[in-house]
Simulated assay, not measured.
Amino acid sequence: MEYYEKENSVVLKNVKNFNIEEILECGQCFRFEKIENLKYKIVAYGKVLYITQTEDSVEFTPCNKEDFENIWYDYFDLDTDYNNIIEEISKNDPIMKSATEYADGIRLLNQEPYECLLSFIISQNNNIPRIKKIIKAMAETYGKSLGDEYAFPRLEEIENVTVEDLMELRMGFRAKYIFDCISKLKNGEVDLSKADTLNTDDLRKELISIKGVGQKVADCVLLFSLKRRETFPTDVWIKRVMEHLYFNDEEKDIKEIHAYAQEKWGEYCGYAQQYLFYYARSLKIGTDKEKKK
């Protein structure tokens, strides 16, 4: 991969395993908007970024070399060899081989942990349009203006909000979970800045200490913002997909699915989960509307 500055942009050339639609539309983030085919706007790390992809390049605007190297290079996980990962998880696995061939441009994002945590609490029992609407309302109400968008509010900007304030953003039952999360972050019971000092199990336990955070939400935060690639977030949808693809439609509990995934994909579980999620959702695998490849 190579990159260079051009006016108000940074252009990537010869980047492999990068498809902006597959990256943003695979359930790992919420603050994005599709402008047209392979052109998206995202809001992350207090910045608005437009990504335009063509057959042989990816352009980030507005962006300079400093921001690209300090923010977006890591955000889009550009230091990782996805071709090698695809080879590893597809060995002797025709199902995974099909999934990775279907969407070989997926990359795991490295999001800001605090924003990722609050966003996935909001995502519980919710649909994507409503999740995005609530997060946008939270940013517009408490965050810093970025022109036509607003940054996700920093902890100090929402540390005094009440459950009632959060209910006004139409969070519903999630308001009390967000309130508890803010309280625990504020008093240090949950300290994301020390995440690197904890192993994955202990970090998961700390996240689950927040009211309303179960293993699925904790695993999403671990995978999408804390680089714990061995996690395998499993909701009802992924459970059904795994049962259909790997267990002949036999019902399994979450622990059995996690054990199977860990044995099969090990340190690459998180990558496998994203390929399966996008593949199964796109083709409606395991549903009555399953499409032919």
Rank of each mutant, 00 (worst) to 15 (best):
Ala99Ile: 04
Glu101Arg: 06
Ala103Asp: 11
Ile106Cys: 13
Arg107Ile: 00
Leu108Val: 07
Leu108Gly: 02
Leu109Asn: 05
Asn110Phe: 06
Gln111Arg: 08
Gln111Phe: 06
Glu112Thr: 00
Pro113His: 09
Pro113Val: 00
Cys116Thr: 09
Leu117His: 09
Phe120Val: 03
Ile122Glu: 04
Ser123Arg: 04
Asn126Val: 06
Asn126Leu: 12
Asn127Gly: 06
Ile128Lys: 03
Ile128Val: 15
Pro129Thr: 10
Pro129Gln: 07
Ile131Trp: 10
Ile131Val: 14
Lys133Gln: 11
Lys133Trp: 05
Lys136His: 05
Lys136Met: 09
Lys136Gly: 02
Ala137Glu: 14
Ala139Ser: 15
Thr141Ile: 01
Tyr142Arg: 02
Tyr142Gln: 00
Gly143Pro: 15
Lys144Leu: 13
Ser145His: 02
Leu146Met: 08
Leu146His: 11
Gly147Gln: 14
Asp148Thr: 12
Tyr150Pro: 13
Phe152Ser: 11
Arg154Trp: 02
Glu157Lys: 15
Val161Asn: 08
Thr162Val: 01
Asp165Arg: 05
Leu166Ile: 08
Met167Trp: 13
Arg170Pro: 00
Met171Cys: 00
Met171Val: 05
Met171Glu: 02
Gly172Asp: 09
Phe173Thr: 13
Arg174Trp: 11
Arg174Ser: 08
Lys176Ile: 13
Lys176Ser: 07
Tyr177Phe: 14
Ile178Gln: 05
Phe179Asn: 07
Asp180Gln: 07
Cys181Gly: 07
Ile182Gly: 04
Ile182Phe: 13
Ile182Cys: 05
Lys186Arg: 15
Asn187Ile: 00
Gly188Ser: 10
Glu189Phe: 03
Glu189Lys: 14
Asp191Ala: 08
Ser193Tyr: 06
Lys194Asp: 04
Asp196Tyr: 09
Asp196Ser: 10
Asp196Trp: 03
